[in-house]
Design a protein around this nucleic acid. Structure first.
Lengths: 221, 221
DNA sequence: ACCTGAACACCGTTCAAGT
DNA sequence: ACCTGAACACCGTTCAAGT
């Protein structure tokens, strides 16, 4: 067989995303990544500056998966579309929101910032001033990252995330229904929940609140 | 001098919170914590099961700082009070939300669950069914954790968190205003932002949206 | 009962050395 | 130009040994 082709940044990012999707952020180590590529850990540093650069690269790729909304849509629909697409893309690759939230990634490229640009544009069109745009943007971002934090983050393995039955057991055994009546009752309805539907519901509530506060209710029709 | 008094769980948690507030979650290692207590790392294991147990203890303490709302208040006010108090308590000790989000803490004690119990009670009183309660609860939780994630998390050191000028510089240097016009303009208004005020604004928007969807608008006169 | 020393199986990263 | 070996300064945790 011929000698192995040299490594490059793209191959490293491909392998890193596979490992991270399978083992989570904590499972993505330089040594394990190198082993998967048939190389020693130190060889990676010929192609990427450090681990942060790898996580930046992954973040950029996932941000690029976010679908640009139809510009003809009224601003609330564009916000809904963007937030939903961000939630879906991050949900497919939870390493990325986790790395962003823990400051291990900080992408500054065009591809990574385009979804934010579109969100900001929608809020500007709604008539918010600079303070209002910043606040509206932060609220939608917070809902996206917060929802992911409560469902898929930290749970490196399970695909659906959320409260799997294993996690519920911890509570069911320990919680005293006499002292936490509402909480105990709610536990029963948790496993049936669909994270994507719950996010859509929460997003609709927030957008309704934003519309009520926007100087311009609807840019279209 | 007399021999040092033996360690105990409380002393360990005291020291751990001080270190975590100063150095962040990544700065809180068993070895450093032990050194601060004048002991070897392995001595800690006589009093706590492992690092997770320490983080659970910290989470419990911070949840206990959340102020119980006046039960006479209408449900939207109770939700606002609880979410605001949670945001403030977590903002004082960002280790805790970060540990929760990364699944390094998972407290199941009464003290830690009481704020959730109160939130659930408020939403039940609003007339939501079990699905609605779970979704309303998740939305408020997501906003709290998500807001903290975007402002104070990952930033172990800086007290105000958010976009300090250091972080802005990264963007200001790299972002092309021609390609990201909205984003570039927004950068100017970021440093003046007050995270607590921005959170209050976002929370008001979400609660407005929840009220519009609630079967019972207002429990009180 | 409480603490220590040494060890195990890991991290990210640097630097000199090899081809 | 690209890769390796050895090393540095860390992790959480276990286990046998000390007092």
């Amino acid at each position: 067989m011929a000698a192995r082709e040299p490594l490059n940044r793209e191959k490293i990012l491909d392998a890193a995303l596979v490992i991270a999707d399978e083992l989570g952020l904590s499972g993505l180590s330089m040594r394990r990544l190198a082993k998967g590529l048939g190389v020693e850990a130190m060889a990676l540093y010929n192609h990427v500056a450090n681990k942060t650069a790898i996580l930046d690269g992954l973040a950029e790729r996932v941000f690029a998966e976010v679908e640009p909304p139809d510009p003809a849509l009224p601003w609330p629909e564009r916000v809904r579309s963007l937030a939903t697409s961000m939630h879906a893309a991050f949900g497919r690759h939870p390493v990325v929101p986790l790395a962003l939230v823990t400051d291990q990634a900080n992408p500054t490229t065009l591809a990574a910032l385009r979804p934010l640009e579109a969100l900001i544009g929608a809020f500007a069109e709604a008539g918010f001033d600079d303070d209002g745009v910043r606040r509206a943007l932060s609220s939608v971002n917070a809902l996206v990252y917060g929802t992911l934090a409560l469902t898929t983050l930290g749970f490196g393995k399970e695909p659906g995330g959320s409260f799997g039955p294993e996690h519920l057991d911890v509570f069911v055994r320990k919680v005293d229904p006499a002292k936490l009546p509402h909480f105990s009752r709610l536990l029963a309805s948790m496993p049936a929940a669909d994270p994507a539907e719950d996010f859509a519901w929460a997003l609709n509530r927030l957008i309704a609140g934003l519309e009520a506060a926007a100087p311009v209710r609807d840019g279209a029709s």
